[in-house]
Design a protein around this nucleic acid. Sequence first.
RNA 1: UACGCGUGGCGAGGCGGCCGCCGCCCGGUGUCCCGCACCGGGUGGAGGAAAGUCCGAGCACGACAGGGCACGGUGGAGGGUAACACCCUCCGGGCGCAAGCCCAGGGAUAGUGCCACAGAGAACAGACCGCCGAUGGCCCGAGCAAAUCCCGCAAGGGAUGAGUCGAAGGCACAGGCAAGGGUGAAACGGUGCGGUAAGAGCGCACCGCCCCGGUGGCGACAUCGGGGGCACGGUAAACCCCACCGCGUGCAAGGCCAAGCAGCGGCAAGGGCCGGCCCGGCCCACUCGAGCCGCGGGUAGGCCGCUUGAUCCCGUCGGUAACGGCGGGGCCAGAGAAAUGGUCGCCACCGCCGGCGUCCGCUCGUUCAGGGACGAUGGCGGCAACAGAACUCGGCUUACGCCCACGCGUAAACG
RNA 2: GGGCUCGUGGCGGAACCGGCAGACGCAGGGGACUUAAAAUCCCCCGGGGUUAAUACCCCAUGAGGGUUCGAAUCCCUCCGAGCCCA
Length: 126
Amino acid sequence: MNSSPTPRLTFGKQRRLRSGADFQRVYRQRTSRNAGPLRVYAAPNHLDGHRLGLSVSRRVGSAVVRNRIKRLLREAFRIEQHTLPGTYDLVVVSHRHEPLTLEAYRQHLRQAVERLHGHWRKQEED
RNA sequence: UACGCGUGGCGAGGCGGCCGCCGCCCGGUGUCCCGCACCGGGUGGAGGAAAGUCCGAGCACGACAGGGCACGGUGGAGGGUAACACCCUCCGGGCGCAAGCCCAGGGAUAGUGCCACAGAGAACAGACCGCCGAUGGCCCGAGCAAAUCCCGCAAGGGAUGAGUCGAAGGCACAGGCAAGGGUGAAACGGUGCGGUAAGAGCGCACCGCCCCGGUGGCGACAUCGGGGGCACGGUAAACCCCACCGCGUGCAAGGCCAAGCAGCGGCAAGGGCCGGCCCGGCCCACUCGAGCCGCGGGUAGGCCGCUUGAUCCCGUCGGUAACGGCGGGGCCAGAGAAAUGGUCGCCACCGCCGGCGUCCGCUCGUUCAGGGACGAUGGCGGCAACAGAACUCGGCUUACGCCCACGCGUAAACG
RNA sequence: GGGCUCGUGGCGGAACCGGCAGACGCAGGGGACUUAAAAUCCCCCGGGGUUAAUACCCCAUGAGGGUUCGAAUCCCUCCGAGCCCA
């Protein structure tokens, strides 16, 4: 059980990318990192927390498989959102693969965001 | 008990903790109010196939969805239904020992096309092998016999023998036949007896087929009687004919609001619409501003459509049934970058492994040991498969896990 | 969500109003030519069985079923690709 004074691990509408314009803004930064079967795009959003968008096309699998992957990715984001550095709008694109465990998705997500954070900090220094 | 058939049912076994998600309702806080955001509470939240998109509808728009052609679909009968290619009952045919299952199951005497290869012949067919020798012919020659010759006085006898004739026999040239062989998916009814030169519906019996009539049934059809020697190959999931049905497009339909760009061309006694053609009809014009159409350009934001419906449950009545009537009760996902998830525990259940106890129509002379059944028990693993609503229903089809229930059939067995 | 099109050897692509499947091209293998290679020419080229080898037989047009004497072709049901629409 988590006894540290972390904020609540919610994932409501304010934590999601909900329009095509949001997605286009992230894609236009052309900044992504791969991690396992995932490709994560990131753009700083200057809000009080990360936001997440998912892109899982029909090529990934059946509706059941796509649902499964998206649920696990949302759960991974929900748990990790306050331990990830910075505040970014993230878009996670899934390649075709068999669904992994929740733990695996958490590691992939954290690894990708940490790399992206490093990239953006170098951008700000330059 | 085994195998099989049919009908119906269920679709995460139950309970709980923690962290979350999407609607709606109520209260509070923030913002001037609305809306929105957040906090708290309540409540609802995937399927039997939600799937494939194979049919049928509702609904929406295209005048008011109308007639004909074209095109497409359906095809035993009667019923059910909003409708159907679905369902029910029945009829006919086929398969199965049976319970049962399957059938695009109208028309091939309206017409057209096709039937490769093989084969003699393939659609008012045909004669390769074969069968026949009745008829004609040829050979042959039992008989008759003109004529000639020889012997004899003569009667007469003998030889040759045109011809006549066709008894017996031969040939198979003409001809007859289509039974058998052979070819083929299919060869112009089948079996048997008679009949014949050989054969053949040539005749007869039975079966099949066709025609007519009676009876039963709403009907598909069944059945009985009479007649016809058979004239009528298959294919319509080939064109087609008949009967019936179908206007087109699909919620990305369509309506409203906001934002935004860039126009060009066509139309006036004409233009547009019912997306193919004709009819029939409608709208707008003839008034100088719009309208409509075509090409091009722009926007992919919000609201409505959007879930109360041929609805579900219970009871009752009608009907063989599908289903329908009546009465009572319920409201059961409505997102739009797409919600039902994650994790932990207890109890059931299943599989594997371990030891304990009891029992034994088992192996065995007995013990040990092994095996089996039952009971409680410890550990590990599993607790799902097919699969995710996207306008909504009715079906079909396909995928999948059961178990359960019920009704049957066949075979074996009954210590 | 809705509408439509197409599946034939390793690849492209014929045969599609039923009648010998795989024409033709590319790739591949063998041979000839050459010192060698390229180019050119000739032959082979789906799988299995059988055989010393040919011959021969069976299975093959995405899968399964149906109609037909006969199906790549006609009909039905699945499977898999691709395209279009606000």
